[in-house]
Design a protein around this nucleic acid. Structure first.
Lengths: 157, 157
DNA sequence: TAGGGATAGATGCAAACGCATATAACTACC
DNA sequence: GGTAGTTATATGCGTTTGCATCTATCCCTA
């Protein structure tokens, strides 16, 4: 008996690595595309990321909480917020309930910048994503990514 | 007549932005997870990325070609390759066919490091991806990401 | 085959990063 | 209620990054 000729089915580990590789490739391709847009004079893409994250927070947030959503080391984020505060885009006040922590929120100017930049950027993102995927596919991609992240963001609430 | 109460169907632009946001979130979550692994003493994650990319190239590649796959500016990649060459992990020789360009390839030591680190990293990736998604879902994710990237990596071959 | 423009990669420099650690404030236990 | 340990953020410092620009080589045309 010879070995059975099996269908070309990848084993899980290989498939998982391939999926990650494609995720990474898509991320890289899109980031380059976004970076190439002539939109980051006022704020860099990372700064915008912070402004955007803050814009979604109904109440002031802690640095550590912000850090959960921004892919930067704690010191790097601390200083990035510094710069944004110096430029009057972010308000940073010490938490009255906990003297160690800070409460971060957008200033009026910060919100204005976020919205102005955000409008254009959102259009670019929409164009880029819809150029490659149909409506249904976008929904699937969103669901898959959400599920993937959720498996690790186990906040024990 | 009042406005029709429609099903809660997101319009394409919003859906596209949501999909991108989740892609970004998944990327961030996984990158953190990988970075947290105790594996990057010999080579940093970015250095590994370069070694891995080179390991997939059957023949020596140009810096500019490598740069297509590594999310770094050209000068940053040039210097990163510098460091890897100085450490004896990458071979860099001027292209005999084009005196401006360089031909990059892994040294024996470089290939060894890539394989050693890669084995462990691949296991981590596999665990992370399969923790959140089933076999079929991994296949879908891969296909969607590939299609998304392909829509922009239009190499006019 | 000489000159003008294009292309590949390297380098100067200031800005931003990560790691380690310092500082300040909270918490818990005795 | 004072001291030990923990947590939230800030700071010192060496490394790495991106932008602008430089150099060297190639290509194309006259």
């Amino acid at each position: 008996m010879t070995t059975q000729p099996v269908a070309p089915q990848r084993v899980m580990p290989q498939l998982a690595n391939d999926a990650w590789e494609q995720l990474l490739a898509a991320y890289g391709t899109l980031m380059r595309l976004y970076a190439a847009e002539d939109r980051w004079d006022e704020v860099s893409m990372r700064e915008y990321d912070v402004l955007y994250t803050l814009s979604k927070c109904p109440a002031p947030v802690r640095l550590s909480e912000l850090n959960r959503h921004v892919l930067l080391s704690q010191p790097a984020l601390s200083r990035l917020v510094d710069r944004l505060a110096e430029r009057g885009l972010v308000d940073r006040c010490t938490d009255p309930a906990d003297g160690r922590g800070v409460r971060l929120s957008l200033t009026e100017a910060g919100r204005a910048v976020q919205q102005r930049v955000g409008r254009g950027h959102a259009r670019t993102v929409a164009r880029a994503m819809t150029a490659g995927l149909t409506h249904d596919e976008l929904g699937q991609l969103e669901a898959l990514c959400r599920k993937l992240a959720a498996a690790h963001d186990k906040d024990p609430t």
